[in-house]
């Protein structure tokens, strides 16, 4: 059997990324051009600025992915691209580049869901075992996804308001930390000896949904009250209190779902899965529970194209194809492809 090589492109937010994946498991090349140095002056991602950077970078990044892999377009099996969700103007750059590239070389196109990509980042670490539970946590998502086999997704819980990463960024702003705030809060929380006691949002007893806006407000109110009393807040204590609340809720709900669905593997995905506090908590809990827990290396947690290529590899085998009329779908839902 011939090897399968997929060129994958990802531009859903502020990283322009291209990768080449062999047989769905091996990274041949993985290039990410980050805009963070440009975007951090705005304290967040400005969509128009993101789109402009993507146009500047797109062919350079794809070229580098091919050069690092020492490959020609004729060596490729298919072209995969993130179709959504994400910033529409940003998605459109990757999608139109992918369509033009596929047309130029007569290659099939594969439209990939960004979250499916995050989950499949783990297929680049070790084989996925089903049923599988994925905790997806990023700046835009907080979801518990149950997979019974490749290409089958059931969202059993999701955030009802802010995504976990969004709450991190907002709390970081309260603490006057630079964007993106997640890593700073994580570091402060690790250094802290004790934390402020902030609430945990458990929602209904059986719910796997999440809510972080109440926690975010509690932090803001705490700061506000301290300011009014003329007292300085201790950023370490606030960071630890906030992170403890987020991590406890995420860990507890993930554990309960893993037990209920009797899963063989638990995986973490998305930018916030790079968080040390969360990783450590999940590792400890599932070691005790004796359920294998995997989390991708840091560079595969944040947005990248390798994960898109990994998901696309399975989609290609399942016969999923896009066409030249593909559009950006900023609110695309995670659906099974089988």
């Amino acid at each position: 059997m011939n090897d399968q090589y997929i060129l994958a492109i990802e531009t859903s937010c502020d990283e322009t990324a291209a990768a080449i994946i062999r047989n769905g498991t091996e990274i041949v090349s993985n290039i990410v051009a980050s805009q963070i140095d440009s975007q951090k002056r705005f304290g967040g991602v400005v969509p128009e600025v993101a789109s402009r950077h993507h146009v500047e970078q797109i062919t350079i990044v794809i070229e580098e992915a091919l050069e690092k892999a020492n490959m020609q377009p004729s060596d490729l099996t298919a072209v995969a691209v993130t179709e959504g969700p994400g910033l529409v103007g940003a998605l459109l750059i990757g999608i139109n580049a992918a369509k033009a590239f596929a047309f130029a070389h007569g290659l099939p196109l594969i439209p990939v869901h960004h979250i499916a990509g995050h989950i499949y980042a783990n297929a680049l670490v070790e084989p996925m075992e089903f049923p599988l539970l994925a905790l997806v946590v990023s700046g835009g998502h907080t979801e518990l996804v149950l997979m019974k086999e490749h290409g089958s997704f059931e969202v059993i819980g999701e955030t009802r308001d802010d995504a976990a990463g969004e709450a991190y960024d907002k709390v970081a702003r309260v603490l006057n930390m630079p964007y993106p705030g997640g890593p700073h809060i994580d570091r402060l929380a690790q250094e802290a000896k004790e934390g402020i006691d902030f609430p945990r949002a458990w929602l209904e007893e059986n719910s796997y949904d999440f809510s972080f806006s109440g926690l975010k407000s509690a932090v803001i109110n705490y700061k506000h009250n301290m300011d009014q009393r003329g007292e300085e807040i201790d950023p370490q204590k606030v960071a630890k209190g906030f992170q403890d609340s987020v991590v406890e809720v995420l860990t507890t709900k993930t554990l309960r779902a893993a037990r209920e669905f009797n899963v063989k593997q638990v995986i973490a995905a998305g930018g916030v899965s790079a968080n040390k506090g969360l990783r450590t908590s999940l590792e400890q809990v599932f070691e005790k529970e004796q359920i294998p827990f995997i989390v991708p290396p840091l560079k595969l947690c944040t947005d990248n194209a390798a994960m898109i290529g990994a998901a696309a590899s399975y989609m290609y085998v399942a016969g999923v194809r896009g066409d030249l009329a593909m559009n950006g779908l900023p609110g695309k839902e995670l659906k099974s492809w089988i």
Partner: peptide, 15 residues
């Protein structure tokens, strides 16, 4: 502009 330029530039680059 970005759609036209992205398509034009990807075609030109890869061809």
């Amino acid at each position: 502009l970005r759609i036209g330029v992205t398509i034009a530039k990807t075609l030109a680059w890869t061809l």
